[in-house]
């Protein structure tokens, strides 16, 4: 498949990119391009102009600053995968990165691009939701910070304005006794998730859960938070019973569709399973001893 013709713009600063966004007629932003390029090739997207962010060096970072983990719009999946900072402190990010697509795609694809694409089968939006993350956008009127909770509208549709672009994603740096994890079920490497669950829990000094965040992948029209499950966990001590209940509530709150990869009822069940598994890992990462009972 071959794309329709388009103009290619390569701004070198965010400011330049934002003015192009304003000046051009319905341009499309290209970051990693690993989802966009196939869409262009199949002519599912036919923009007259493409604004390519890849020369904007100021967007290429992954760092902790001011109490936040900050992910620049050009940080690639591989940057998360290979980051010692992430491996040490951000379990859900470390889990999710190597589960995204395949190595070549992780070398190019960006976390922000995945979030902007707003495909409910994408992984990063769930992680962002579980962590109470934020999307930082820049437009002609300056910077706007959008809570992840308010970002996703529909498949491929977000609350980002037409003349805005994502410059950064951010989540709070981990607290003491915090643990997070991401579990995903897919049929093979490179396949999208059939279901996925990102969780983050924070324990108080007594070991009671004081904060819980759960984001679900591929089981609704957008990535969604499992709010009932989150609420059920807060105030509880981590236990298999509490996690089981949370898994069940998360499943109840999901609305997957049946497709060739699986029935809706199965996907709901997997939300339960993956959420429980992620909670067990998160509890371990929060400092608890989790004993696995296996064959």
């Amino acid at each position: 498949m071959k794309s329709a013709p388009f103009e290619h713009h390569e701004p070198e600063t965010v400011a330049e990119a934002v003015s192009l966004l304003e000046a051009l007629d319905e341009p499309t932003i290209l970051a990693g391009g690993q989802s966009l390029v196939p869409m262009l090739r199949f002519r599912l997207a036919n923009p007259d102009a493409v604004i390519d962010l890849n020369r904007i060096d100021e967007l290429d970072y992954l760092e902790e600053a001011d109490g936040m983990l900050r992910i620049g719009a050009l940080a690639r999946h591989v940057d998360i995968e290979e980051s010692a900072l992430i491996a040490d402190r951000y379990g859900s990010f470390a889990d999710a990165a190597p589960l995204v697509a395949d190595p070549q795609i992780r070398n190019r694809g960006t976390i922000a691009g995945s979030v902007a694409q707003a495909d409910p089968k994408g992984d990063w939006a769930s992680v962002l939701l579980a962590h109470d993350g934020e999307v930082v956008a820049r437009g002609p009127d300056g910077e706007r910070v959008i809570p992840a909770d308010e970002f996703f509208l529909l498949p491929y549709d977000t609350t980002l304005d037409e003349n805005e672009m994502i410059t950064e994603l951010r989540v709070p740096t981990p607290l003491d006794r915090e643990g997070s994890a991401y579990h995903k079920l897919k049929r093979k490497t490179g396949d999208y998730a059939m279901a996925g669950s990102a969780v983050r829990i924070v324990l108080d000094e007594e070991g009671t859960i004081e904060t819980a965040g759960i984001g679900l992948t591929a089981v609704d029209i957008t990535n969604v938070r499992a709010t009932d499950a989150e609420e059920s966990l807060v105030g509880e001590r981590p236990s298999k019973e509490a996690f089981k209940q949370a898994g069940e509530l998360a499943a109840e709150q999901s609305h997957p569709e049946s497709d060739e990869h699986g029935d809706a009822s199965y996907k709901e069940r997997m939300v339960n399973v993956l959420t429980q598994r992620a909670l067990a890992d998160a509890a371990e990462r929060a400092g608890l001893v989790v004993k696995r009972v296996t064959a």
């Binding site: 391009g33 690993q34 890849n54 070398n107």
Partner: peptide, 24 residues
């Protein structure tokens, strides 16, 4: 972008050259 038959190494990294425009 699934098959990888187009894999080349660009600036030290394996990429799929069917998921990148030449101008990039």
């Amino acid at each position: 972008g699934n098959c990888g038959a187009c894999t080349v190494v660009k600036d030290g990294e394996a990429i799929k050259s069917c998921l990148t425009f030449a101008v990039q």
